[in-house]
């Protein structure tokens, strides 16, 4: 099943709607990484609200997406992990270390806004702290 990738301003939003096979996940990764460069994006949001199971391959793919997108110049944030899924993940040791996660799409957009802004003008931020 194809995951639609939407463009919203400087960001790409991939909203996963149903359980994905490993092949679907790999495909999503390739498509996202290709599009990041093509559309000169600053951020990627992967919405997993609809997923009620997250296996090790899915977690690894999400982590790979984050690292690969960073190499291509975009921040990645995973949004919408369900409480039960989160607890199951940490029990299995799948903690998505080094990958930003926030509550939902709205928070994800706010997070990317703050990140891109911070990298664009770091000076006032440093002055404030």
């Amino acid at each position: 099943m194809e995951v639609p990738i939407l463009r919203q301003g400087q960001y790409l939003i991939a909203s996963i709607q149903s359980a994905l096979t490993d092949a679907d996940l790999s495909h999503l990764r390739e498509a996202l990484i290709a599009q990041v460069g093509r559309s000169r994006c600053r951020g990627v949001i992967v919405d997993v609200t609809a997923l009620d199971v997250m296996d090790s391959f899915a977690v690894r793919t999400l982590r790979d997406i984050a690292h690969m997108a960073r190499l291509r110049g975009a921040e990645t944030v995973i949004v919408g992990i369900q409480p039960d899924v989160a607890f199951a993940m940490v029990q299995l040791g799948l903690t998505l270390k080094g990958v930003a996660t926030v509550l939902d799409l709205e928070e994800g957009l706010a997070f990317l806004d703050s990140r891109t802004k911070a990298t664009l003008d770091t000076k006032p931020k440093r002055g404030r702290g």
């Binding site: 409480p83 989160a86 940490v90 903690t95 998505l96 996660t101 926030v102 928070e107 997070f111």
Partner: peptide, 11 residues
């Protein structure tokens, strides 16, 4: 684990 799970929810 609780701390990590909370982080996954963005807290």
């Amino acid at each position: 684990q609780t701390v990590e799970a909370s982080r996954l929810l963005g807290a």
